[in-house]
Design a protein around this nucleic acid. Structure first.
Length: 233
DNA sequence: CCAGACGTTGTT
DNA sequence: GTCTGG
DNA sequence: CCAGACGTTGTT
DNA sequence: GTCTGG
């Protein structure tokens, strides 16, 4: 799945890589993008610029916004059937910009010296990125929700698929990462077959993983240290 | 017909 | 255990 | 995803 | 809004 990621690029690198302009001073590099935050996307509604949408899709018909807490991922396999996503799949697609995502692996806890070997499980965070460290876009869906006073919130979800062989060791699901040449296609006019074909696992050969500090666990931490490979592992 | 859900992951 | 907030 | 809260009444 | 379950 994908429940946390980074997007640490400088603003002019974002503009050059994705062909968008950034019309706000609010853009900053992020090391710990978490659900409920406003994060960088390119929406088919305004594909020429960077937008900031809330992570956790709130369907337009929702009575209250808290339903968005559960909608951080959408399974590619069922996207055309789910009431919460089918409408957005047809009309409201976006690119979720990233340079790496985090997954937690369940590992056997290693007992310290003198301690009795235990069977306790431990969740260990890994960072997963492209081998060349380059920026990428994850396939997303978005929607607009209005509260009782008519104030609008744009929100998004990240589409997931089965893990490739590299990531399977850590977790059995992964976000859909689009080939760079497919990014604009994702935002183009809807074509069911064309768009479903893009929702495949990104190739293992082009990716790498490394263990990171558990500092990433808390969404309150957001600094360079989080993307540092953990040496003592 | 109306009422109630609408999601994923992981674990059992 | 389960929900909310980040 | 993880972390942290999870309750009411009444009083300050 | 739209689908499922009763």
């Amino acid at each position: 799945m994908c429940g946390r990621f980074s997007f640490t690029a400088r603003r002019d690198d974002v503009e050059n890589r994705f062909g968008v302009f950034i019309d706000t001073d609010a853009y900053i590099p992020r090391y710990n993008c978490a659900p409920s935050q406003k994060l960088s996307v390119i929406s088919n509604a305004s594909p020429e610029k960077l937008s900031f949408y809330r992570w956790g899709l709130i369907p337009f018909w929702a009575k209250d916004f808290s339903i968005g807490n559960k909608m951080i991922n959408a399974r590619a396999e069922s996207i055309i059937e789910k009431p919460s996503f089918k409408n957005s799949f047809r009309r409201k697609r976006c690119l979720v910009l990233s340079d790496g995502f985090y997954e937690w692996k369940k590992e056997e806890k290693v007992a310290g010296a003198g301690a009795v070997a235990g069977k306790k499980e431990e969740k260990v965070p890994y960072r997963i990125l492209k081998k060349d460290n380059s920026l990428f876009a994850m396939a997303g869906l978005w929607d607009t929700w209005k509260d009782a006073e008519g104030r609008e919130t744009q929100s998004f979800t990240i589409i997931t698929t089965s893990a490739n062989d590299l990531i399977k060791d850590i977790h059995h699901r992964m976000p859909v990462i689009l080939q760079p040449e497919h990014e604009r296609l994702w935002l183009d006019e809807f074509d069911k077959q064309k768009h479903l074909e893009l929702l495949k696992p990104y190739p293992s050969e082009l990716m790498k993983t490394y263990r990171v500090s558990k500092l990433v666990n808390s969404p309150l931490n957001d600094n360079k240290e989080l993307i540092q490979p953990l040496i003592n592992s």
